[in-house]
């Protein structure tokens, strides 16, 4: 088995791991935590958020720990000055863009990296209106950090439903159904997996949302019942 082990150093400590291990997993096994945002154990890693970047000696740019694998002779630094600057600035930019009030993990990171949440005055945030178009869940994309997990679990990572993809590009990117049709008109099967992987509360079960904005349970049951009835009536009409 030793033939498959690679030798490297992590923050100065010599270490080894099976070939093909990501830097993130290798570090975890050595008790070194590398922060992640978009990464999810059961989703394809795309290295989007770049919070997990580390400095590898000899590499021109920083390397994402979630996808890069350890190599023989690699010298990895998880807390170098370049790494800390990138993490801090990415977090500061995220704060200037989206509502992170329901993202406790990111808040903890902000504290750890000495982040100034108000670093970018006069920055244009992304504040699309909340979409409440079905009885199961609401979509508050003002909280969406574009981690892609919902799109991935809706597609090949889990459900093969393909109800959602992207609208726009660059800073204007948003998650959207086909031509922005309401969710019930899309291919969505309301499996709830997207809500399960959302890290910032952008996707939320309707009952939880209604509870949070102050409705009592009885009222909520009444509302969702009548909404379901409304949907049935619409179906009957169109039949």
């Amino acid at each position: 088995m030793t033939a498959n082990l690679v030798q490297f150093t992590l923050d100065g400590t010599p270490a080894q791991a099976p070939a093909g291990t990501t830097i993130l997993k290798a570090a975890q096994q050595l008790g070194i935590a590398i922060p992640t945002i978009c990464y999810h154990d059961y989703c394809t890693a795309n290295a989007l958020c770049r919070i997990c970047v580390v400095e590898v000696k000899g590499a021109r740019v920083l390397v994402p720990a979630c996808t890069a694998t350890v190599q023989d002779g690699m010298e990895i630094h998880t807390q170098s000055e370049r790494v800390q600057r990138a993490r801090r600035v990415i977090l500061e930019m995220l704060y200037s863009t989206v509502d992170l009030s329901e993202a406790p993990e990111i808040e903890a990171m902000a504290a750890a990296y000495d982040v100034d949440c108000q670093r970018f005055p006069q920055a244009e945030p992304r504040r699309p209106p909340l979409i409440d178009d079905n009885p199961m869940y609401v979509r508050d994309y003002a909280k969406c950090i574009l981690c892609w997990r919902c799109v991935q679990v809706c597609a090949e990572d889990a459900q093969y439903t393909y109800a959602i993809n992207f609208k726009g590009r660059g800073y204007e990117t948003q998650i959207s159904t086909f031509y922005e049709v309401p969710m019930p008109e899309s291919t969505c099967v309301f499996c709830g997996q997207c809500i399960g992987v959302c890290p910032t509360g952008a996707l939320k079960f309707k009952r939880q949302y209604l509870l949070e904005i102050g409705y009592a349970i009885e009222e909520i049951l009444q509302m969702t019942r009548s909404e379901r009835g409304g949907r049935r009536r619409r179906a009957e009409r169109s039949a």
Binding site: N46, L48, V89, M93, Q122, L146, R169, G170, E172
Partner: peptide, 19 residues
């Protein structure tokens, strides 16, 4: 305008740089 929006540094950074 041309950032694809995939990774955070460029997606948000190009917008903040513009501002």
């Amino acid at each position: 305008e041309e950032s694809c929006g995939k990774c955070y540094p460029c997606q948000i950074g190009t917008q903040r740089q513009l501002e």
